Amino acid sequence: MNPLLADTTTTNSFLPMVSVVVPIYNGEADLPELIDCLLSQTYAKERVEYLIVDNNSSDRTLADLQKFAENCPITIRPLSQNQIQSSYAARNTGIRAAIGEIIAFTDADCRPQPQWLLSLIQPFVKQEVVIVAGEIIALPGNTLLEQYADRQETLSQKHTLAHSFCAYGQTANLAIRRIALEKAGLFRPYLTTGGDADICWRILQQNIGRLEFAPEAIVQHRHRTTLKELESQWRRYGRSNRYLHELHGVELMREITKGECGYRLLRWLLKEVPKEILKAIALKANLVDLFNTPIGLFTARARYSGQQDAKLPEQAKIIDWL
């Protein structure tokens, strides 16, 4: 038999039962597009359930979700977690209700592409694989900040997979074997950021199995469009640094001092700006090239500020179990 044909046959016949868990909070605007993306999945419909967990929304999210679930050609199970305001608590609610041997995760504001789930699940054909991370790319954006984040590939899993402490995948595009969750525990329900790294590291450090990257398993996600949103995003990254430092001993990022910041801005004004203006005149540069340095300094300082201000709550150390 042709080996290539054999591999294809094996891949096509590998269809374990999968439960996709999606936390949602005040996401009524995101629901129609999210449901369309789930309907477009090429994974066998009878082998997947979608557990969308409302996290105490104050809008019409839960009511709209229940309407979408009625008479839907795919299995959508609306759930609710209104005791703890945390996406990780909502994910735990979904995991507990799930029947799949593999639990996949994405977010309500993500847009999984049609081949997403099929590509994300295929690496699990190898028994030693217990975590699979797919790729996250940006939805098309026109603002300067969106273009900057796209250039930096801010959302890409390549950053988390290359983490200096230990690789991990973001829950916007992640799948985990149920048996690994049984052994290492679920998400920390009171944690508000950093839970994806924490759960992956607990699994990997217990040598339950290994992580694999599935680059063809793609979800799209929006970049931030305003400085306020961008600052909030990077402050959250800083809080995550602090929490993971306290939970796992991860090295904290160093501060960019005012002197260093001033020097880099002066260098930008005197050297980079004239250079980029000349390139722009020759149609070889754009605004992203021109403002790369100040935006980068802005995000770095926001991240450090979030790290400095954060303190891990005692409750956030609690791990939920199946």
Rank of each mutant, 00 (worst) to 15 (best):
Y168Q: 06
R77P: 01
S40V: 00
E314S: 07
I179F: 00
H223N: 03
L38W: 12
K45M: 04
L265D: 10
Q206V: 03
D7E: 12
A108H: 13
E276D: 07
I137G: 05
Q83S: 11
A138G: 15
H245K: 12
N26P: 09
V250T: 09
A282G: 02
Y168V: 15
A300C: 01
D54I: 02
H221E: 08
E182D: 12
T193N: 13
A285Y: 04
K228L: 04
L266I: 07
Y43N: 12
L283H: 09
G185L: 11
K284R: 15
L269P: 06
D289I: 12
N56H: 13
Q152K: 15
P3A: 04
K126N: 13
A300T: 01
N82S: 14
A280R: 15
A44T: 10
K311T: 06
V22C: 07
C110V: 03
I24D: 05
R202S: 14
Q127C: 13
L4P: 01
Q206W: 00
G141M: 09
G262W: 00
L38R: 08
K279Y: 01
L211N: 10
D150H: 06
R77C: 05
L62E: 02
K284C: 04
G185E: 15
V53E: 03
V21S: 03
L31N: 05
T293Y: 00
M253R: 11
P112S: 03
E260I: 15
R111S: 10
I281W: 03
P73Y: 05
Q233Y: 03
A285T: 10
Y148C: 06
E135D: 10
V219A: 06
R178F: 00
L120R: 08
I52L: 14
T10S: 11
Y168H: 07
E260D: 12
A217T: 11
K284P: 13
S305F: 14
I137H: 13
A149C: 14
L283G: 02
E216P: 08
K311A: 02
Q83K: 14
G249P: 13
V125Y: 11
K158M: 06
N56D: 10
L155R: 01
I277D: 10
P78D: 01
L65G: 08
A149I: 02
E153H: 12
L287C: 05
C166G: 03
L38G: 12
K279F: 01
G134W: 04
A217V: 09
A285W: 06
R224F: 05
R222P: 07
K45C: 05
I256E: 10
L5I: 15
I121D: 07
L191V: 08
L204Y: 09
Q147E: 04
Y43R: 12
R264N: 13
W234Q: 10
N142G: 08
L290T: 04
R210M: 08
L322N: 07
I102D: 07
E251K: 08
Q41E: 00
L145A: 02
H163C: 14
P16A: 04
W201L: 11
N173R: 09
D59G: 12
S119C: 12
V219C: 06
R239F: 04
G134D: 06
D309P: 05
